[in-house]
Write a protein that binds this DNA or RNA. Structure first.
Lengths: 328, 328
DNA sequence: TTGTATGCGTTATCAT
DNA sequence: ATGATAACGCATACAA
């Protein structure tokens, strides 16, 4: 790959002059400019970012550290981050931690070695102060995405609020008992429970939490629940994937949806509209989150002295569809 | 971020000595070695890859250029590529072309600027000689993944063969008419048609090709087909997403699956097992493909003189499930 | 075994 | 307007 110095020799000027031409710096003799540019084009010269970074200090590299790129939701985020970053001339160096804190730590070392200008991270664990201390110690602008992280810039949707709304919706649709499919530590659950508790302090008497991902086990727990509570059951699954699993089980069991059981998922993936019945779900503003995260990061990069921490919650929207709509 | 020279000063040795210690090169006084290592650890020294690259010529960066990272199949590939590359100390710089050749060309420029050691690419277009010429001209080791590319190293599954097998399977399940949901230029279709033609040269008389992605339009075409052909219909969709859409439409229409219509998708995504009925699909060896692609690339990087082109077709496997299994 | 000197491809600061 | 020159952080050949 041809270098500036070589271009300089070929055009009979000095290397810094080539640099000036290429950077549009200062006034350069138009004749020379043309000569250099045509030579550059002819040889397909491309600047060496490594050298530029060494000399200038910016790498235009953004480290993106994710828990699971194969998760459609994160993959979608990456798409938008890449797009937005590209607009500002930044590129992504991508890491997958697979939810492993050890792996995450290694990633943090590697991004330091590459002298990335900034970092967008989905933390491997929900809440660990050790991690935060580490990420602070490396002195690279960081934005946490999809999770709230106290004391760090972060962009996320309010899952608690979303859960609350799902509870509200299911109640409005005439549900008399409830199932939450997922972990109780989930903010979605907190909001969901908060609403139901407001409605009836002892709602737990009409509630089942299912955690297992095993279809057979789910079927059993579901059967128990349905036997116990004859009225319409409202089911909230922590993501669409699980909602789909649940829907399949309900259909296999011959349970009428939404008549006997109303179902709501989370993520609003494309499948929602294709399923029969179509699946109600909570939609997160993926593109807006990605764009906001990058913009926050860019700000931090360009104004490192601004130590103000931005906590940016975004609104998730419940999209009601056939799987939970009784009246329409 | 602390540098080698600074470490050298702090420990009272020369910078090259620090370099030797860090690279395990040659014999170094054990005393000094310890002194340097502890200083390195104390200050959290991390080598500057930009400088290393400039001095040594390798960036340990692999450019990954994809058409659509938000596609679950590609996202999955990226996950495995990242994993495998990481094992050999390589990192990914990720690009999304969005199927736009112009965008792709820009990506090719950028990876050159970053002096990536190699490239793994999903071409934006199926077959364009212009693109191949371009990618050859940049003199970076390249492996094309998921697509056959004549004259370039490539790793892919034989879609034609897979299509052939799907046809065979559907026929075995007693189908008497067929629908292909997708583009006829697709190799899957070629194989599918090849089998059916072998069975009955005028199979086209009992065949419908549906291209539109609009649900209403699909429903109409489906209705026409079913009216015309009373026997069991075999439906082959070009991916699971479309198969799901089709399944929803069939269910909405009250068509019995697989009794009246047997359905097969492509990609074997997680949803196959959750749907009701479970969805038959063609499974590609994602991890094996990713690993093979990276290994091929690594070989090219380490043995640039080896100009042998590897064309590496892998076998896709049909996973029959309820949506197409009549006898079991 | 260790230090000196040089070069990688840029940018930037000087002179000229 | 342009050309020397130094500097970025490291690896490496060479000298000591």
């Amino acid at each position: 790959m041809i270098t500036m110095t070589e271009i300089a020799k070929l055009t009979g000027v000095s290397q810094p002059t080539v640099s000036r031409v290429l950077n549009g710096n200062q006034a350069v003799n138009p004749e020379i400019r043309e000569r250099v540019l045509s030579c550059v084009k002819e040889h397909g010269y491309q600047p060496n970012v490594m050298a530029q970074s060494l000399a200038g200090s910016k790498t235009h590299l953004i480290g993106v550290i994710l828990t699971d790129i194969s998760n459609a939701f994160f993959a979608d985020l990456v798409k938008y981050i890449e797009q937005e970053a590209g607009r500002s001339g930044y590129r992504l160096i991508l890491f997958n931690t697979n939810y492993d804190p050890e792996q995450e730590q290694k990633c943090l070392e590697v991004v330091q070695r590459y002298r990335v200008d900034g970092l967008i991270v989905v933390p491997a664990q929900e809440e660990t102060s050790g991690w935060k201390a580490l990420i602070r110690s490396i002195h690279i602008p960081v934005v946490v995405i999809t999770r709230y992280a106290k004391g760090l810039d972060c962009v996320y949707t309010d899952h608690r609020e979303a859960g609350f709304r799902v509870g509200c919706h299911l109640q409005e649709q005439g549900c008399e008992s409830y199932i939450f499919f997922g972990n109780k530590a989930d903010k979605k659950y907190e909001g969901f429970a908060e609403f139901l508790e407001g409605l009836d302090p002892v709602f737990r008497n009409r509630f089942t939490n299912i955690i297992t991902k095993d279809s057979t086990a789910i079927e059993k727990e579901l059967e128990t629940h349905l036997k116990k509570y004859p009225g319409r059951t409202g089911i909230f699954a922590y993501n669409d994937r699980r909602a789909l699993q649940f829907l399949g089980i309900l259909q296999k069991m011959g349970v009428e949806v939404p008549g006997r059981a109303a179902l709501v998922g989370f993520d609003n993936t494309y499948m929602c509209e294709y399923l029969y019945p179509t699946l109600s779900s909570v939609s997160q503003p993926n593109e807006a989150m990605a764009v906001k995260a990058f913009k926050l990061l860019l700000h931090k990069i360009e104004q490192p002295e601004d130590s103000h921490v931005e906590d940016w919650p975004m609104e998730a929207e419940l999209i009601p569809r056939e799987s939970s709509l009784i009246y329409r």
